[in-house]
Design a protein around this nucleic acid. Structure first.
Length: 419
RNA sequence: GCGGCCGUAGCUCAAUGGUAGAGCUCCAGUUUGUGGUACUGGCUGUUGCGGGUUCGAGUCCCGUCGGUCGCCCCA
């Protein structure tokens, strides 16, 4: 059995996972994002520098054989920051990069959360304009739409971290209370009101008024973002909600989280602007923003909506050897068929009926039968769905497939698990 | 780290404190070269593990390990 919190991917599950990856990649590329990757193992210090020593409790970390403190990456942003700051002069701004890393955390597994998952990361670096925020949120929306989800299924809750920073400035909240203040807002939905009131003190009434009526609080940034999304026809996918602050300390501007409308699942995705992070980590002053989306909550949601990508593996062509004496000639046919798509055949002599049954069970669309007629370079091609069959010279094999292809597309020529 | 629920065949589950079973899956057949159904046969268990109560424990009790859901946390 796999370690607690880790997953085995049997072929059907692997195909389903790869289908998710496929939609992620396709959508990112349509937005002009390019893919990058980094090492799964990093110096421990890379993560403590960004998040403080407390994070170690949630990491898979250890000493390697060279006595180096290392950790499996819990997130992609520090790696991205390192890669970008090291070579940022090699790249024209803004950078639009995405990645699908497997990330790890040492926590007790629960629904939608294991000790590893794949996280679709999209970041724009080197662009201060709010147009980038609009573009990134649009990409998030289109990604979810790419799975067949609609505005009835999910909503992006939009907020502005800077709004709260300005608010705390205006109310002269002392520096050492600000983290707790933000935390209290973050938890206000899940905690009893009295507890939040206690934490917020005299500002409680004002804060609750803002949370209850997002329209009462001014944010030009959110006005601009909402207008930009309206121009794209995406206004129904978002809702202003100042309770979203994101736990992370490093966000500086517009932040957002994607939730399913039923509230049954935890957040599907989250992100925002982190304009000062690259300067703090790498001493390169570049504005940046990004989001992350995990595969587990997404898969749970798609399952619940009946939108899970088909995990069926198989199909292709089954090569039937009518008599094992023709096996040598059949191998020549096999090589030719392999140019067209996935081909299966029996490794050992078997009755024709058995071979047809095997073809069936594998979900093959076509059978190609080799018998005595191979002496005249003829093979029998059969559509296993319609049961139609015909003899054809090997040279015309492709047109035979086409001829027998009634309604279904010529499945064998399409890859089964596109990645 | 804390709490609820659950551990019986590969899977889903039965079995009043009294000889551990079924369905599905898998494998092999149903006589000679055309498949999904049907039929026949076969494989698989230290009932998670360790103690205790009892004439007798899959069943009751204690512990432990594992799973799952939630809390904490969420970078």
């Amino acid at each position: 059995m796999a370690l607690s919190g880790f997953r085995d991917f049997y072929p059907d599950q692997c195909a389903a996972r790869n289908a998710i990856f496929g939609t992620w990649r396709e959508t990112a590329r349509r937005y002009g994002f390019v893919e990058y990757d980094g090492p799964p193992l990093e110096p421990l210090e890379l993560f403590t520098r960004k998040s403080g020593p407390e994070i170690v409790g949630q990491l898979y970390n250890f000493k390697d054989k060279g006595d180096r403190e290392v950790a499996l990456r819990p997130e992609m942003t520090p790696t991205l920051a390192r890669m970008v700051t090291a070579r940022h002069k090699d790249f024209k701004k803004p950078l639009k990069w995405f990645s699908i890393p497997q990330v790890y955390r040492y926590e007790r597994p629960q629904k939608g959360r294991g000790r590893e998952h794949y996280q679709f990361n999209c970041d724009i670096i080197g662009e201060a304009s709010l147009e980038a925020d609009v573009e990134l949120i649009a990409l998030l929306i289109d990604t979810l739409r790419g799975f067949g989800l609609t505005e009835k299924d999910f909503v992006i809750r939009l907020s502005d971290r800077q709004f709260w920073t300005d608010f705390m400035d205006a109310k002269a909240v002392p520096e050492d209370h600000r983290y707790a203040f933000i935390q209290a807002i973050d938890k206000s939905e899940r905690e009893p009101r009295e507890k939040t009131v206690e934490k917020l003190g005299p500002l409680a009434d004002e804060v609750f008024a803002i949370l209850a009526d997002a329209g009462s609080a001014k944010s030009e940034r959110l006005d601009t973002v909402e207008t930009g999304l309206r121009h794209r026809g995406l206004q129904d996918y978002v809702k202003r909600d100042y309770t979203v602050v994101r736990g992370l300390a490093y966000y500086t501007g517009v932040v957002f989280e994607a939730f399913d409308r039923t509230g049954e699942f935890r957040a599907i995705a989250g992100g925002g602007r982190y304009d000062t992070l690259l300067k703090n980590l790498g001493d390169v002053d570049l504005p940046a923003l990004g989001f992350g989306m995990g595969d587990m909550v997404l898969a749970d949601l798609l399952n619940a909506k009946g939108l899970a990508p088909a995990g069926k593996t198989g199909n292709g062509i089954y090569l039937i050897i009518a008599d094992d004496g023709y096996r040598p000639q059949a191998m020549r046919v096999l090589t030719r068929l392999r140019e067209l798509g996935p081909v299966h055949y029996s490794f050992t002599p078997a009755k024709v009926g058995k071979q047809f049954q095997a073809a069936d069970e594998l979900g093959c669309c076509y059978a190609v039968l080799v018998d005595a007629k191979i002496g005249d370079d003829l093979v029998q091609v059969k559509n296993l769905k319609t049961r139609e069959q015909l003899d054809t010279p090997m040279a015309d094999i492709v047109s035979a497939f086409t001829k027998l292809d009634q309604s279904a597309p010529l499945a064998p020529v399409h890859p089964v698990n596109p990645v």
